[in-house]
Design a protein around this nucleic acid. Sequence first.
DNA 1: TTTTTACTGTTCATCAAATAACAAATATTA
DNA 2: TAATATTTGTTATTTGATGAACAGTAAAAA
Lengths: 207, 207
Amino acid sequence: MKKLPGKTVERLSEYRRALLGSLADNRSYIFSHELAALLHITAVQVRRDLMLIGYGSVMRKGYDIRELIKTIGDIIDAPTGLNVAIIGMGNLGRAITGYFMGKRTKLNVVAAFDIDPQKVDKVVSGVKCYHFDNFKRLRSELDITIGVLTVPPDQGKAVTAQLVSYGIKGILNFTTVSLNVPENVYLEEFDMITSIEKVAYFVKENQ
Amino acid sequence: MKKLPGKTVERLSEYRRALLGSLADNRSYIFSHELAALLHITAVQVRRDLMLIGYGSVMRKGYDIRELIKTIGDIIDAPTGLNVAIIGMGNLGRAITGYFMGKRTKLNVVAAFDIDPQKVDKVVSGVKCYHFDNFKRLRSELDITIGVLTVPPDQGKAVTAQLVSYGIKGILNFTTVSLNVPENVYLEEFDMITSIEKVAYFVKENQ
DNA sequence: TTTTTACTGTTCATCAAATAACAAATATTA
DNA sequence: TAATATTTGTTATTTGATGAACAGTAAAAA
């Protein structure tokens, strides 16, 4: 399958979550315009995304929710699942760990790392925190491919260099520093301050 | 000034942060390609954004950092600043509150809200947590215009309805539910699960 | 002084994403 | 049965964002 646009991947993830919610409401089929309404987008957008992944519905009954959930999984999940580590077990690290609790996804948070003795060896939401000195060994033992970076900004660059050199393949960066990674490592950055400043700008402009 | 594209606003916020960093390094002028390198974008993109806000440099010396910081502030900040409240003082709420500590921005986190007696009346990073029952009163007393939503997903929709009805103008939503707000309220959504699933997809595809 | 070099501001071209348009398919109604 | 209504899959159009090209300008070098 051809590589999908990033935006489509994001929406597929959101579709799946919405669909799981609909299943919980004992629905079995859903129309494109209903799914669209759940995400506040247009029905065309939904149909176009599903076209890209080659999913077809039973005409006039809508999409089979269970089937669609499975199809989305086949596309965006790795067959065997991927293992994730939280790097930096401060408030944010704990928050993210908590988010994953109980969610049966193909992404497994298998470890957390920190250098603070207060945090090392503690277990949060079922995830054990190791000293970062053990990262190299545990990275390969536990087959960790994705790192969620939630360390203080001044440590962001140094820690990233280590993650990369020990073989991490994807990084989700929550620090406020902009990182440098090689071609073969996928990097997604999220900056809270920027997000709030953006909200503030549009609030100001709306008045 | 005409409303700027959302992407440009995001970059302006990032430029400013990078510029403040350069100031700290005792630099006074910066070239477009240098600023671009700090954000891993192209020099053209930088010049284009600055063109949009009508900022001109001293030719061949680069941009005056102090002046540019001020210009960006004039564009994206509200003249008097805006007040922000954190709704939900779990790990994520505390993390965000901490992010703002010590940053002299025009955005002031003036209050936090929760319903858990364990959290109410506690002070975190200089921000006091109130019971959400007081939101209506404090919203207007403290002139809160922006809410950062960090409550459990099942409460997202109900809490949002209240924020809106009591006059909030912008919401940054960190819950995993998709919210509905009226036209005049600006909504920015961020979904961690989606972000990590996106990283996972591109890690999988890169191999 | 003249030439070269180094940047900028702006226009033009390309690429990606979102929206609109519409033929095809099937259930429902008349 | 024929006509209508509903929903899909796909193509075409528009919009928006990014990247490339280039003329203009000032400092530095010759």
